[in-house]
Design a protein around this nucleic acid. Structure first.
Lengths: 142, 142
DNA sequence: TTGGATGCAAAAGTTTTGCACGGTT
DNA sequence: AACCGTGCAAAACTTTTGCATCCAA
């Protein structure tokens, strides 16, 4: 049984062709993907899956904490990535919208402080950093 | 001339009834508002403004850096707030979706480090922290 | 007066839903 | 066999756009 199938079973989810394919795509991506990205890659791979199935599957996986879901400023669509990828953040270019991962999280330790201060049970955080990449910085003097 | 009008003029924007009302609403809110929030409050105040005008106005203000625009996990709509509010972050309850502002930013200093490391010109960041508020933590043992 | 802003209606884009059918367990 | 997942089509929801009209400068 494949790695991907195990991951689904562990959560009590049925292992269908579509789910395996969608999860494999998410796993293979170096960067977060949109529902459309997944849908198009399925087509390229000649695996039939309806767009509503893609959304439902991504939603199910999000609820089962297999993947994260988030938004990036400048783009109104949801992005998805494996929750098991090493914790990281993204640096987003305001100009060309390119996103690059940043290694090292500046928030280690902070969550505990906050937990004590607020009495919330902290589950995680989402941080994106915005700026201009070297190329766009040249075109956009501000 | 009102404060709100000055803010618009400073950016070279025309001061219309709708723009003043929309900006006043954003200013009066303690927490970020959605386009719909603004639209409904306009109605309550009996100020006629079309939903497309609300979006266009918010967009114009976003481009002129009068307001910020961002998303919160669990809600697919855009939120807006004044850029001039003191820099802050939000703690979002995964259960009841309540959001509370957090004082103190754990990222001061980090951006300069990153600028040196990446050669990007950093403009800012967006951080949200997720967890369960005391009430929801009781109902959702995980 | 004139160019930018608004209202209206229609469309675009993303995401969700009802229902019948099909596939996993 | 029972139940969950999928396809399809339609709808819901958020956001954008074209165009005529209106209004601030």
């Amino acid at each position: 049984m494949s790695d991907t199938e195990l991951l689904l079973r562990k959560k009590g989810l049925r292992t269908t062709k579509q789910r395996k394919a969608i999860l494999d795509i998410i796993k293979s991506r170096k960067l977060p993907a949109t529902a459309e990205d997944v849908f198009l890659e399925l087509k390229v791979k000649d695996i039939s899956a309806n767009i509503s199935t893609v959304y439902r599957t991504l939603d199910t996986m999000f609820e089962n904490r297999i993947i994260n879901k988030f938004y990036i400023v400048g783009d109104d669509r949801a992005f998805y990535e494996l929750t098991s990828v090493k914790h990281r953040h993204f640096l987003v270019c305001i100009g060309c919208k390119a996103i690059i991962p940043i290694t090292g999280c500046p928030l280690s330790g902070y969550e505990k402080t906050l937990e004590a201060k607020t009495n919330y049970r902290i589950a995680g955080h989402r941080l994106n950093i915005y700026g201009y990449c070297p190329k766009c910085a040249l075109n956009d003097k501000k």
